[in-house]
């Protein structure tokens, strides 16, 4: 079970959080102008990486804020945590 450093609250047990899938998938501004394929790409297609993955997490049983996490899925090492809207760290 991880210890997650919520950018608003500090270190808390993983059981207080929920994972919300891949990060940095922006909802299209004009969905009605997309083809079926383009919309399906947004709606369904997700990477499932063994290794460094960018993910969304939310502090459900805490401040209820969403934030981003860079996690190595092969060993669960959390490489970085940053707020929504912030740029992902490079490397």
């Amino acid at each position: 079970m991880f210890v997650i450093n919520c950018p608003y609250c500090g270190e808390r047990e993983q059981s207080e959080f929920k994972a919300g899938g891949e990060a940095h998938i922006v909802r299209p501004k004009q969905p009605t102008e997309l083809s079926d394929d383009q919309w399906a790409e947004y709606l369904f297609m997700r990477k499932n990486i063994k290794g460094i993955q960018f993910e969304r997490w939310v502090h459900t049983h805490g401040c209820r804020k969403w934030f981003n996490m860079v996690r190595d899925t092969s060993n669960d090492e959390i490489k970085a945590i940053y707020k929504m809207g912030e740029k992902p760290p490079v490397k």
């Binding site: 939310v58 209820r64 804020k65 969403w66 929504m84």
Partner: peptide, 8 residues
Amino acid sequence: LEDYLQTE
């Protein structure tokens, strides 16, 4: 709802 408000 919170998710959309905070992230989108």
